[in-house]
Design a binder for these strands. Structure first.
Lengths: 244, 244
DNA sequence: GTCAATTATTGACGCTCCGTCAGAATTTAC
DNA sequence: GTAAATTCTGACGGAGCGTCAATAATTGAC
């Protein structure tokens, strides 16, 4: 387990190399342009060799997606481990998510490919499980903060409303906004000039709605977000650099 | 334009027939199972004939999606044209959206396929435009209600927050929840027992957050939603029947 | 009713990509 | 040095796409 022969290390390195080659093809030309023949010829290996690493091209996408989600997870962890009350840190997670979508565009895009049922369904369940675990781990980071808020008495425990259900709301609104922003090119033509600002406001209203103290007016909230953003941005950028 | 020869009518009818044949394949076995050869042989026509109607299989999916979205649009229109204040009717639209996802499962699923960039990008821009128009028309229905609420004085006009941006929030949360519900099979394992109820609550909190009078407590809101649901359900079902 | 022009239909064909596997090449173990 | 084990190769069969020359059906003028 610990010790690997030179050959084994070479093979492991090649797995990474395949991903390095595949990623730009996927991002620049889409999934259908990502062919095994093409990857093989770019790597100067035969197709069969590539199949030794990934049993189909969908697996490559999921492998890329897992890498991407690990980055997301790290950003979330950093945000959750910051200073201040739980509500402040949950706002930081919102910013982490924003950062991921805005500044880790490629990783965000890879995640989108992963969600395509075509691709998802053709992958091995092992890889699917890895991704699910990573996703639920991201969610748990947020749920923990919600529970912390409840424990501290800042957030009233609503009856018939679990921590997870609150997270679901935040998750849905962030996720929904991001997908809509990414997939509707003419959002500004529809009257939505600054979707990021809108999303921030909507999250604020959700948190206020839960009764999470201290309640902020939208204006206060937006200012506070900017402040928190200034605090975390360098850290997020650091994580992004380490990842590359 | 108005008068069609018998032949032209036959051809038009065949277009519909192709969609009738393609739909169950797409829904039951996915996009990759939807092959032109298969459609052709099921219809007992040659492949070339099918290509006379749709220049690739992606176009078939978009045609199906347009039909689906027209149904959604009708549901929205029905909800918007109901009785009561704008806020009540906007809640009805939420229910229309819920109905669409829950009870028009097939149409909802077709819409999901349409969003796959693989499929979207290979379709003609004409068809893309038709769909975009339908989508923005759905959105405008909601924006109108928001503006009505503002005009009536029930909904304060927040500065730097347009009607469309509010709609964006509602849209994002509904859309996000629905996608998450549809794509995360183990939502209940994550602690989200009743995503529909959660989504309703989140919408309530968003509306309250905007300051839309009358403000409802979550409990009141949920009761009211049930009441509105009872009123609209038969009408929605009627529309669904007419569509089939 | 005939026949030429027009329009519609056909399915074989060329192409691309997938995933496999028998055999060649290389590495390892002794 | 060599035999066994491992790794690598690329030709191959199969599936599906989209085309287009050939064939069939329809139309309408006489």
């Amino acid at each position: 387990m610990v010790e690997l022969t030179r050959k084994q290390r070479e093979i492991q390195e090649r797995t990474r190399e395949i991903l390095r080659v595949a990623k730009p093809i996927l991002l620049a030309e889409g999934f259908q342009a990502l062919t095994m023949d093409r990857v093989a010829s770019r790597m100067e290996y035969a197709k069969g060799t590539i199949y030794g690493h990934f049993s189909n091209k969908e697996e490559i996408v999921l492998a890329l997606a897992l890498e991407a989600m690990r980055l997301r997870q790290k950003l979330f962890q950093k945000a959750a481990s910051g200073t201040g009350l739980a509500r402040r840190r949950i706002m930081a997670i919102g910013l982490a998510s924003e950062f991921y979508t805005q500044r880790c565009t490629e990783e965000f895009q890879v995640e989108q490919w992963m969600r395509h049922s075509n691709i998802w369904d053709k992958s091995s369940s092992d890889r699917q499980t890895l991704i699910r675990n990573c996703e639920s781990s991201c969610m748990q980071i947020v749920s923990e903060l919600v529970r912390e808020g409840q424990a501290m008495g800042d957030l009233p425990t609503l009856e018939r409303m679990s921590a997870e259900e609150m997270v679901f709301g935040l998750w849905a609104i962030t996720f929904g906004s991001q997908i809509l922003t990414a997939s509707s090119p003419s959002l500004s033509a529809l009257g939505i000039i600054d979707p990021i600002r809108s999303t921030r406001i909507h999250c604020c209203q959700l948190l206020n709605g839960f009764g999470w103290q201290p309640i902020h007016s939208v204006e206060e909230y937006l200012e506070l977000v900017d402040e928190i953003s200034a605090e975390y941005l360098p850290q997020f950028e650091q994580i992004q650099r380490e990842y590359r």
